[in-house]
């Protein structure tokens, strides 16, 4: 992402911190690493967003929420939001803050490492136990899986690791 060099850009980045994933209100789109570029030309703001999953039904909603948030800044006349596919979004773009927010919501952040056979492991976001089993790699949304903690006996979700090495 480009560095914020002028004050309007800073303001825009500030309001984007308040635009959350529609389904996970503890994580902003900045923390998810979805904001690739913010470009300010006088009072026109151009924003490039990386979709997490191509079929994600929340994308249009996110776009509208971004527009609404940025338009709330007095100096802004126009906001253009564009989804781009290059570079591809990967789960290592999620910031430390984002990983914390996911956990708060009860979702295990995506593992940073995968085994050579493509399997991966996360700890329970509630009790921290490593004693968990994979129930369904496809969870309620494309980007999440369902697991079960055998220690605290809670089902929980995990964000899938997404990498271009796959």
């Amino acid at each position: 992402m480009q560095m914020a060099i002028n004050s309007l850009e800073k303001k825009v980045l500030g309001v984007l911190e308040e635009v959350h994933d529609p389904e996970i209100n503890t994580v902003s789109i900045i923390d998810l690493g979805m904001v690739e570029e913010v470009n300010v030309q006088d009072s026109v703001v151009n924003i490039k967003i990386l979709p997490t999953f191509l079929g994600c039904p929340a994308l249009e909603l996110i776009k509208e929420n971004i527009k609404k948030a940025v338009k709330s800044i007095d100096e802004v006349q126009q906001v253009n939001v564009q989804f781009i596919n290059h570079p591809p979004w990967t789960s290592d773009r999620i910031s430390e803050q984002g990983r914390k927010g996911l956990k708060e919501f009860g979702i295990a952040p995506p593992p940073r490492l995968m085994d050579s056979d493509g399997s991966w492991h996360v700890d329970c976001p509630f009790c921290g136990s490593t004693y968990v089993t994979m129930e369904n790699i496809f969870g309620p949304t494309a980007c999440r899986s369902i697991l079960y903690c055998k220690n605290c006996k809670n089902p929980f979700e995990a964000m899938k690791p997404i990498s271009t090495l796959m």
Binding site: F53, L54, G55, C56, N85, N136, F138, T141, A142, I146
Partner: peptide, 20 residues
């Protein structure tokens, strides 16, 4: 039910690919 969730998710992803 688990399979229903999984295969629907795959269909949704694939529809996203078609859309692209």
């Amino acid at each position: 039910i688990e399979e229903d969730v999984a295969s629907s998710s795959i269909s949704q992803d694939s529809m996203g690919h078609a859309a692209m």
